[in-house]
Design a protein around this nucleic acid. Structure first.
Lengths: 160, 160
DNA sequence: GCCTACTTGACAACCGGCTGTCAACAATGT
DNA sequence: ACATTGTTGACAGCCGGTTGTCAAGTAGGC
């Protein structure tokens, strides 16, 4: 009887779509006081989690976006004073980006906001339920991503 | 110990982002042979599941998008011959949309493609695992959507 | 019958993704 | 040294969403 699992999968898909939108909205709302958006927060996060300055393409690689998309966010982030642009000896045209003090403060503030938001969100939900859901989603994401729609070779490696 | 549930939530968020992108890509790939995209498929679905013709705003309401966004897809769908535009006696400016024979065939074909894709995707995954994940996601989506980022009244109802 | 308020389609603009292209620079092989 | 290949930033354009605005049609109160 595949029918029930199909229905569950459909429910998961629909919930993922709704949740994705809701999470981005919530992230934007969380980030607004700091002049950030979900996308820019993610870029800050890549730098905050790295132990060395990164170029735009490295950041893109780290968060799974294209270098062009990340470049957009970096260009928007720079005027806010959250970034430090360092000369890159390995490639004069591609500067290294690093968090400025203000950027690091902003990221830490975002992290605190996120943590308290998350804590409120999961009130009353059993740990195992969340951990199980995380595992299932990761499994599904892996399958979908590697399979694509058919068993067709996926259009992976992007432009390079 | 809240820490572990926070981590699980973060994992869920990241998985949701990845899965959302992967599902849309897979949907586009599935729909391509029928000249459709994920977005247009969803619009066809709203009409297929309805028992009466619908106006653009009604479709938007059904699938949770703005009327303008749906209008875009309808405008794109019409030239494909998948839609029938019926005069609306209740509002001369707002035609009712209905699936043409070709549209209904296309939707049924999409449904078949989706079902076989879904069946392959969940091979080996226990039904309960998927059902549990679906429940958890629906719970989370509901919480995030109604809470927003803070306990701030959400900006629901859109433009009207 | 008229005025107001709502609904609707059309249009423009924006956002965050994507792709593609071009030119500059870097790295590598010969 | 030189040619080739790869990386990178800049830019333009597309997609699917959003918002906002405008004008036309509709509905309801008076």
């Amino acid at each position: 009887m595949r029918h029930e699992t199909d229905e569950s999968l459909t429910r998961i898909c629909l919930a993922v779509f709704r949740l994705n939108g809701a999470l981005l909205d919530a992230g934007d709302e969380l980030a607004r006081p700091l002049l950030l958006t979900s996308a820019r927060w993610q870029v800050l996060g890549a730098l905050a989690l790295s132990d060395t300055p990164l170029t735009a393409p490295r950041i893109a690689q780290a968060i799974g976006l294209t270098r062009q998309g990340v470049q957009k966010q970096l260009n928007a982030l720079a005027p806010l004073g959250y970034l430090e642009k360092l000369e890159n000896d390995d490639n004069r045209r591609s500067p290294l980006f690093w968090l400025s003090d203000a950027g690091r403060r902003a990221y830490q503030e975002m992290d605190a906001l996120y943590r308290s938001w998350a804590a409120k969100l999961v009130l009353g939900l059993p740990v195992e339920e969340l951990a199980d859901a995380a595992r299932t989603l990761e499994e599904l994401a892996g399958r979908v991503k590697s399979w694509g729609a058919s068993n067709t070779p996926q259009r992976g490696g992007r432009e390079s």
